[in-house]
Design a protein around this nucleic acid. Sequence first.
DNA 1: CGCTAACAAGACACTTCTGTCAAGTATTAT
DNA 2: ATAATACTTGACAGAAGTGTCTTGTTAGCG
Lengths: 169, 169
Amino acid sequence: MLCLSQTTGYAVLALSCMDNPCNGKWVLAKEVSECTGIPQAYLSKILHSLVGSGLIQAKRGYRGGFTLARPADQISILDITEAVEGESWLPRCLLGLVDCSQLRACPTHDFWSIERGNIESELRRTTLSVVAEFERSRGTRMGACCDTEEPDSTPNKPGVKRRSKAKPR
Amino acid sequence: MLCLSQTTGYAVLALSCMDNPCNGKWVLAKEVSECTGIPQAYLSKILHSLVGSGLIQAKRGYRGGFTLARPADQISILDITEAVEGESWLPRCLLGLVDCSQLRACPTHDFWSIERGNIESELRRTTLSVVAEFERSRGTRMGACCDTEEPDSTPNKPGVKRRSKAKPR
DNA sequence: CGCTAACAAGACACTTCTGTCAAGTATTAT
DNA sequence: ATAATACTTGACAGAAGTGTCTTGTTAGCG
């Protein structure tokens, strides 16, 4: 499968959700889970690791939660990807060959060198702010948390539940 | 990790090796293993699955082995990739999001649609023949089996052993 | 102080990928 | 027929990804 891990997608979703202006400063993992559909226990692990990477901050106990460590326009998808997948998330060889180098290349080496650059710069260019703007203009999935729909007369109830919890596959 | 599985790289290496004109029609898994450095037992499984996909043929018993089912210029890396990884080896969403579609896209959706096309057509364009020619012109890793070096006065001995068997990692 | 809210952390489970090992089966040579 | 050869098949094992569950730890409230 030529794609990033599902966990990276989860992380982008989660941080987009946390940037939502209708949230308070500290957002609960539970809220993010309900907003995005990411399993809460697993989300907690992801968020915890993102704390370790310095992208977000955590506060324990009553009225705790998570918050972005920097403004959303200073967090790129590339930042998130590297935080989740590590530095070598974009390998030198498309075919996964260990000893594929400039000297001893595979036939897709030159092609993939260019593509790698394209992909990396696209992910660097796309910040959480861009994600939010994209969401406003096109109605995407990301960050579509508490924005529209309900006037929200009962703020106690955690409302928006987009997925059923049981997701067989 | 944004790359194809190691097994796909193995398969491309192995089939390139099998196209080598100095081999007889039926090439032993053992020879391919020694030529490419792929663990033999694992290689056997890969080759067996490629038989099931119709890319190569197998012959058991004395003087058996494997051979390409079609001429090398009619086997593309895309064919091999799909045989190894299945049809959905290039997912619609770069971030691995399940419900990312044209209607409900992620911010990298349009970008990735274009890139996907580039990658797929590159892999379709690159046949085993192209691999062989690439090897001749640039001295790549692939298919670099028994081509040069020895005049090969003792054809009984399986000669070229490029890697030590023990490969700790 | 004691209660509750919320994150932290570890154990465990399931699947896939990668890889090894051994036994089985088919083909050819002699 | 028998032996040698070489693919076939299944069991097993370790690592990584994806989750779940339970217990521990911290922060604030009354």
